[in-house]
Design a protein around this nucleic acid. Structure first.
Lengths: 204, 204
DNA sequence: CTATGTGAACAGCTTCACAGCG
DNA sequence: CGCTGTGAAGCTGTTCACATAG
């Protein structure tokens, strides 16, 4: 989608699977197969019509509608993400924030729409009122599992977890964990540190 | 590593591949295979000795030393990440920050070690002085490709990219892109929105 | 008897290659 | 003739299962 929008902005009206793949570091076949799982959008001999494909994908992915989200954990990272505009740009609005810390409950978070920090007990009602499906979890690692369970019980269907732990929640709740430090560790590992040293070889 | 440390804190002295896998949502065989790529650490009939395995892995992964990092792009997300303590907890210190915007260069970023925002032209020297290998990239999407190339030219070996674009840099520079909104989109897609609607079926 | 390390079997994903359509 | 859609082939990564060690 991002790449298609870039092509559209550049004034391209059609794009081939080869063009798309080239821009994304994928093979042409990969692009066609992936799109093939959702339907048939291409025009043989022509390629994909950019505005048409964008419309179809937006509808399929649900990115044609705004989505309400909540955030739990108004610590450093939580406040950080609240001031980040990238979510809004892609159609997400954080409409409620929560924290377990009594000292933080009631505090106003400034922003375009200022938000009052709520206690976890208010979550079920707030979720219903705003039809919230997904939540961002930015609590300290030791609290993450418990809070995730509370979110699941309150009706959240998807959790974007920033705590460096593996969450286990039952039911139909989807989890995506983003461990920012882990990515840095991987880069540091690959990038010259140790992998290339002669006394610490990977096998094969 | 995270899970091993958790086991250690819990006072466990040995752990089997089954225990480790169970806690991480992996099979026992997967755990053994993965560890097998780095060497033989286990003790048949016993499992893995927790402190021993932690030491070995820390040395192999390079997480036994502190690593200096830089950050480019002192916008919303950049400042956010600078105030996040998760990187420091895992041995990374951001020792320099850069921005292309002349209005931001020279500004002081508060923190444990306050940092003066530098211009991109100072990057090569700063990288040498502090032996910096990895960088965090938090500039707007349209600027990301150009800045990434500048970072590569200045000697950076790994880039943690938060701009929602596919970066292409030559040479031995590793790229890890984290698109925060994309993860939310995926969760929203899986979590009831559209995937379960009858008129938008996935094939198969 | 327990739990590793590892070839062998298997599964899933990627690439190939080509028929068919505009 | 160009480019899609898609079975078939190829490959990578996961799981199985067992010989081996404590």
């Amino acid at each position: 989608m991002r790449q298609l929008e870039a092509f559209q902005t550049a004034g391209r009206n059609t794009v081939s699977s080869r063009d798309l793949g080239g821009a994304l570091g994928l093979s042409d076949a990969q692009v066609r197969k992936d799109l093939g799982y959702f339907g048939q959008f291409g025009h043989p001999g022509v390629g994909y019509r950019v505005p048409e494909l964008i419309d179809q994908l937006r509808r399929i992915l649900g990115t044609d509608k705004k989505t309400n989200a909540l955030l739990v954990g108004v610590g450093n990272l939580g406040r950080a993400l609240l001031s980040y505009r990238g979510f809004a740009k892609r159609g997400f609005e954080v409409v409620a924030v929560f924290d377990n810390d009594a000292a933080k409950v009631g505090v106003e978070i400034p922003g375009v729409h200022p938000l009052r920090v709520q206690s976890l007990s208010e979550m079920p009602g707030t979720i219903q009122r705003h039809d919230i499906r997904v939540g961002i979890l930015t609590v300290p690692a030791p609290a993450a599992q418990g809070v995730a369970e509370a979110m699941a019980a309150a009706g959240i269907r998807g959790i974007l977890n920033f705590a460096p732990v593996t969450l286990r929640v039952g039911g139909a709740v989807h989890i995506a964990t983003v461990d920012l430090a882990e990515h840095l560790e991987q880069l540091a590992f690959q990038s010259g540190g140790v992998a290339s040293e002669p006394d610490l070889p990977l096998r094969e």
